[in-house]
């Protein structure tokens, strides 16, 4: 029993390092060579989308750094939740317990907020959460690109949630889904006004949902780069390095919190679609 465990453990460790080396090589080889622009870089340059191979135009199918970092987040997901749980052990290994922690965290969130009948949509929510979390956290690597800083990406995520929730609301509840906007606990005079406000806030949801995520991540990355630009000035550099360290710690927190917030708001919207009357 213990021998088998240690054997699979050492195999897992070797597989882990092999994947890490391959990924590292892939990142280095496909990255832009350093020193083209020297230290005079622009804070917004990190968000540029460049083709992976050559310098051509970017059409919809061109493999770009978007492809690279999204692919890496898929690899990270596979590494954590598929290779990490390979042992299916009753007493989990470290990787497996992290995977189970993530599973339990989102599962409990969906169950608590969206209710028992929301559990059916757990895989969708888990997909959103893992995509955002892995994009955010991988984006904190130096020289990386973060897909979630782009409004195009987060807007698609938010619109997916919005359309899904709206369609689901109408399919599940029919016309009574509109009761979401008709606040029956308010006095009769106020109800039309409240209905307008509720309607507007309903349609603002995807806007704030997407801009919150993109804005938070973009702001953090831009701030890190602004401080990094100060590091070129000798007198400023210690301060700059200290500030980058502090902001980096904060960004690690923000990367997680934003994934959490996006997911929890998705659950709240899902709850509204499933039970519009309370």
């Amino acid at each position: 029993m213990t021998e088998a465990n240690s054997k699979s453990g050492s195999f897992g460790r070797i597989a882990f390092w092999v994947i890490l080396v391959v990924v590292g090589l892939a990142i280095v080889l496909t990255g832009k060579p350093l020193g083209e622009e020297g230290l005079a870089f622009h804070p917004m340059a990190q968000f540029e989308i460049t083709p992976l191979f050559g310098d051509g135009d970017i059409s919809w199918y061109t493999p770009t750094n978007v492809t690279k970092w999204m692919g890496l987040s898929v690899l990270a997901l596979v590494g954590l939740l598929v290779i990490g749980t390979r042992g299916r052990a009753i007493v989990p290994s470290r990787m497996q317990s992290v995977g189970e922690l993530m599973y339990g965290f989102i599962y409990k969130m969906v169950e608590d907020i969206a209710g028992k009948d929301g559990v059916k949509y757990f895989p969708y929510i888990m997909t959103l959460f893992s995509f955002i979390l892995f994009s955010n956290v991988l984006g904190l690597l130096p020289m990386s690109y973060t897909p979630t800083t782009h409004i195009a990406v987060t807007a698609v995520l938010a619109m997916l949630v919005f359309t899904f929730v709206t369609v689901l609301g109408f399919v599940k509840n029919g016309a009574s889904f509109l009761g979401l906007f008709w606040v029956s606990s308010a006095p009769m005079v106020l109800r039309p006004v409240l209905a307008i406000i509720e309607l507007i806030s309903y349609f603002v949801r995807p806007v704030s949902h997407s801009i919150r995520l993109a804005g938070n991540i973009m702001a953090g990355h831009a701030v890190v780069k602004v401080f990094a630009a100060f590091a070129a000035v000798t007198i400023m550099s210690p301060l700059s390095i200290a500030a980058i360290t502090a902001v980096y710690g904060l960004e690690l927190l923000v990367a997680f919190i934003q994934a959490y917030v996006f997911t929890i708001l998705t659950c709240v919207y899902l709850k509204d679609a499933l039970h519009p009357n309370h």
Binding site: R212, A219, Y260, L265
Partner: peptide, 23 residues
């Protein structure tokens, strides 16, 4: 705690909007 984070996210989103205006 979930409500706390939702509330914080709403409050913070408005600050992020001002950052967006700046950008």
């Amino acid at each position: 705690t979930a409500t706390l984070f939702i509330g914080m996210a709403f409050a913070e989103a408005l600050g992020i909007f001002s950052f967006l205006v700046a950008l």
